[in-house]
Design a protein around this nucleic acid. Structure first.
Length: 569
RNA sequence: CGGGGCAUGGCGCAGUCUGGUAGCGCACCUGCUUUGGGAGCAGGGUGUCGGGGGUUCGAAUCCCUCUGCCCCGACCA
């Protein structure tokens, strides 16, 4: 390929609305352009990279025994009503009607479609196990799309759905997919970690996420310093102190706390650590409001709270009116003493003594509060997120470290969640009707592109891992319009290297060398050849490695064999 | 969904307060010079000033309205 035939849409200025490096570089390198919030066009350069990612995923899925299909991006509402997700999925589901006023959605995922498809095709256990995948554009109407294609609304996803006759079969495919995912990310040159996760709206029991560790990641990940436990923070179980709470020493005292709204305000005014106060969160429950108690320095884990019997899902906070009517005070002064609604306390709260809480009287708090003596001890539960430095729930020796990750893959054991509600069954070896056991396995293909850049770049631009690079190598001629010799050598090299199987980009724009160097660096081509009079006089061309920056002269006669080693063909 | 902000050439912005018929930088086009890390000189304007409505002799500018986009928050006790 020659740059004169190729849309090299590089820009010098960093776009003002791009916050993270991959977004900035994808714009600057001319890979993508925004069409609307969270919706992007892929330019030739970006598409080349996207296709590379796609083909690695496709090859490994095929190798695992999965079969490729392609399902519609537009799905009828009836399917989603059947599975119950038309109501459950919420505003992220992009809904619309056709001219006949029939309701549809743009598919954010394809469990319903594949289940419908396969309940008709799979009649017998002899057809199992089976695993079907597609690489398809999806749409999720994110609250706040950001970071370019990292959290776009439209994105390219590989999704696979497995079917088998029993849980053992489901788990077997799950394991195969687990290994396949490792293989895919390794081949793509991405350093990923498999982390145990909550299964979210997709449903099911057992699930792992695959994360690229990066500071710009949106998901907090907990890693154990001792064992190989790795989990999404939201999925880490926490445990309270054992035994009875310590005895309090201080008397129950009411203190005036004017104008305080937060735990930090209260503790700042009383000169106490946030961990010695408890916050009382009033949420909406099945039979009216429920109070959740957390230590002041802990955060509520919504997923855990939603699993409580009394709490409504999705979790919502009670409005101020309700809070006033049950506590007789504003949100900043609510406390568990004398509350007539059900109370659930995080385990950590129960091991506090002499703690601080709201007095249920505007602008007053209580100090020196103790369980048993001042109020009955409420029911304990796991309601919060772990924090850095806590004990690992697995080995109970190591301490948890919290880092950030970009979720690039997610695998689920769905069980019979969809097959049951949508009646996907087949006959087993005894001729009896059996519900299918399903798994589902996603990879964010377009997100992989952004994640790779987050993990591999420098001040000059992108540094592609070889399997994702849009071109294997570039040729930068110096004075191609001036020097016949340079032009001849470039033409000859272009032919020979192409014939030898290299995918190369020849910069024939006759730009100044600095411009060409800067562009080739920016778009991240792993290997570069410079052809100029200077080195040709010595019978050489100059080779430079994008990642290491090391360069060397290679005699033209040895070029192909030398490049095969360097490029890794 | 709540709060804040922005919308003027391909991109980034000034002009808006105080109405007078659109400008700067980059990019782009033409020519000459230059050619090993984002060149210099000269010439060129490629624009329904986000849409609609209103006020006015006259609107990018004032008023009303709609739309799009960005940032922060939505875990607050």
């Amino acid at each position: 390929m020659r740059t004169s035939q190729f849309l090299l849409a590089t820009v010098k200025e960093t776009p003002s609305d791009a916050e993270i490096i991959s977004h900035q570089l994808m714009i600057r390198a001319g890979m993508i352009r925004k069409l609307a919030a969270g919706i992007y066009s892929w330019l030739p350069l970006g598409l080349r990279v996207l296709r590379k990612a796609e083909s690695v995923v496709r090859e490994e899925m095929d190798r695992s025994g999965a079969q490729e299909v392609l399902m519609p991006s537009i799905q009828p509402a009836e399917l989603w009503q059947e599975s119950g997700r038309w109501e459950d999925y919420g505003p992220e589901l992009l809904r619309f009607t056709d001219r006949h006023e029939r309701e549809f959605c743009y598919g954010p995922t394809h469990e319903e479609v594949i289940t419908t498809l396969m309940r008709n095709e799979i009649q017998s256990y002899r057809q199992l196990p089976a695993n079907f995948y597609q690489i398809q554009w999806k749409f999720r109407d994110e609250i706040r799309p950001r970071f370019g294609v990292m959290r776009g609304r439209e994105f390219l996803m590989k999704d696979a759905y497995s079917f088998d006759i029993d849980p053992e079969g489901m788990q077997k495919i799950y394991q195969v997919m687990h290994q396949t995912y490792h293989r895919i990310f390794t081949r793509l040159g991405l350093e990923t970690r498999a982390v145990t996760a909550d299964s979210g709206t997709i449903g099911g029991s057992h699930s792992h996420e695959f994360h690229v560790l990066a500071d710009s990641g949106e998901d907090p990940i907990a890693l154990c310093s001792n064992c190989d436990y790795t989990a999404n923070v939201e999925a880490v179980p926490t445990v309270g102190g054992e035994g009875a709470p310590p005895e309090g020493e201080n008397p129950l005292t009411k203190v005036h706390t004017p104008g305080v709204k937060t735990i930090d305000d209260v503790c700042g005014q009383l000169k106490l650590p946030a961990g010695s106060a408890i916050k009382t969160l009033v949420v909406n429950g099945i039979d009216g409001p429920v109070a959740l108690l957390l230590r002041g320095d802990h955060d509520l884990n919504t997923i855990k709270a939603e699993k409580m019997e009394l709490v409504s899902a999705p979790l919502t906070f009670a409005d101020l009116k309700t809070i006033h009517s049950i506590a007789g005070a504003g949100a900043g002064s609510v406390g568990p003493l004398g509350l007539s609604i059900p109370i659930i306390a995080d385990h950590a709260v129960l091991s506090l003594a002499d703690f601080v809480c709201g007095a249920n009287e505007e602008a007053f708090h209580l100090t020196g509060v103790n369980w048993g003596r001042d109020l009955p001890q409420p029911k304990g539960a796991d309601l919060r997120n772990v924090i850095e430095g806590e004990l690992c729930p697995e080995c109970r020796e190591g301490k948890l470290q919290i880092r950030r990750g970009i979720e690039v893959g997610h695998i689920f054991q769905l069980g019979t969640k969809y097959s049951e509600s949508m009646e996907a069954t087949c006959l087993n070896d005894e001729g009896k009707i059996t519900t299918l056991w399903m798994g589902c396995y996603g990879i964010g293909v377009s997100r992989i592109v952004a994640a790779a850049i987050e993990q591999s770049h420098d001040e000059n631009g992108i540094i592609w891992p070889a399997p994702l690079a849009p071109f294997d190598l570039s040729i930068v001629p110096i004075g191609i319009n001036k020097s016949k010799k340079v032009a001849q050598v470039v033409s000859r090299l272009e032919k020979e290297l192409t014939a030898a199987g290299f995918d190369l980009l020849v910069d024939d724009r006759n730009e100044r060398p600095g411009v060409m160097f800067a562009d080739m660096d920016l778009i991240g081509i792993p290997h570069r050849l410079v052809v100029g009079e200077r080195s040709l006089e010595r019978g050489c061309v100059e080779y430079r490695n994008r990642r290491t920056g090391e360069s060397e002269d290679i005699p033209t006669g040895e070029l192909i064999s030398e490049l095969k080693i360097k490029v890794g063909h």
